[in-house]
Nucleic acid binder design. Structure first.
Lengths: 221, 221
DNA sequence: TAGATTGTTAATCGATTAACAATC
DNA sequence: TAGATTGTTAATCGATTAACAATC
């Protein structure tokens, strides 16, 4: 058994998140006609320090030129080679409510190599309606959707009370990953990798930061 | 100058996020009629280890009973005392598209002590429409909304290209915090504390986890 | 050559895990 | 008392910051 060298498997999670931001920003720089960019500049644009940028990029191999910076186009290609699947990564949206519609309509997916292949809902009133050119199908069709499209990742946008049951259903239907918008994180159903997007939690942290920084609560007596 | 004891200002960020989950779960346990809960059980419900739960809760002072666990109602009260403002925390939503509508409709806000006081959009076609019983107002009314309601936190749900300009506008209008759904994180406008909710980033990390775990890509040759 | 900027290493910081005494 | 469970301390792990030699 030998180690793979071209695609290091151990890129830290914090780095992965930032690499994503670099990619988005490099795309903009390229469209703006920039030839090169320094770690300092790229850091300014994405909210990271120059050192962090360099360290992160070094996971992809040394691609910069000392004294000059990074070639925008080459680095972008390298990032896309690393992360982008050869064809767009299919997604299935579970829950056709407001949030599901928002995710389905998300303009960034095209640019970032994703493609929504189906939207499912368990509410008969929603099934059959059109969303972004797709017909909403019934949740029970999930196994069939998986078979038809080979989709491996689901986006869970159902109300919190349904989240658990639908997650189990996803595991059973053969999905391998789930991005959940549910406000609580119960243990993930067995073979499923689940990540959470939780804006109420972020709001909570934000409020604590404001409180601690003394920015608000003007102590009205 | 003396240290405040009742409300420790130094609760770690990771802990704050989890305390939020504990609160949500304790609410459910209370409604289910549970009297007490152990750190082990609370951990199972929220995806944390028993040790982490105890450590997190110890930031609120020692509230458990050895050999018994934590009193659900008392602990919940303590958590709400710590985090909940006396009156619901007002929010203004900036951007009345799908995502803005989803956030405005989010059922969890009531339970968690938030209240959406206004929805703003810069697109005249959207201004005047109703959303969750509120009339969408024009983005230029923000300073007035701030004055009328005393709102301090904005939820940024505009498209990525507008995010920067609207963030500046928020800072100018006197907001002190922003929860942004923008896919990139430019430097925050001066006095504003900004947190990001980025599902494309989480999706990216999820895919890398799947790749590394070998769960998918069945190596079709 | 001199200035700029990278790539990498060492030091610091914070969060998690593991262990265990305290005690209901 | 004995079993269960907390609260806290020490050890480990990972991420960030700072420093600097390498080199375009």
């Amino acid at each position: 058994m030998r180690m793979r060298e071209t695609r290091p498997e151990g890129i830290p999670e914090a780095t992965l998140g930032r690499l994503h931001h670099y990619r988005v920003m490099l795309g903009r720089l390229q469209r703006a006609g920039q030839q090169t960019v320094s770690s300092r500049k790229l850091g300014e644009l994405t909210g990271a320090s120059a050192e962090v940028v360099r360290k992160d990029l070094s996971w992809l191999g040394a691609y910069g030129q000392r004294g000059v910076g990074y070639e925008v186009e080459g680095l972008l290609r390298r990032l896309e080679e690393e992360f982008r699947p050869t064809s767009p990564c299919p997604l299935v949206i579970l829950g056709a409510g407001n949030l599901g519609a928002a995710v389905a309509a998300y303009a960034g997916f095209d640019l970032q190599g994703y493609r929504v292949v189906a939207v499912l809902d368990s509410n008969p009133a929603r099934v059959g309606h059109r969303l972004q050119g797709m017909v909403v199908r019934h949740m029970r069709d999930l196994p069939q959707v998986v078979q038809e499209t080979g989709v491996e990742i689901g986006v869970l946008t159902v109300p919190a009370v349904q989240a658990n049951a639908v997650a189990e259903w996803c595991a059973a239907a053969g999905l391998s990953g789930l991005l959940s918008f549910s406000p609580v994180q119960p243990p993930a159903p067995a073979p499923l990798v689940v990540r959470y997007v939780n804006f109420a939690e972020q709001l909570q942290i934000l409020r604590c930061q404001l409180r601690d920084s003394g920015a608000h609560t003007p102590e009205r007596v």
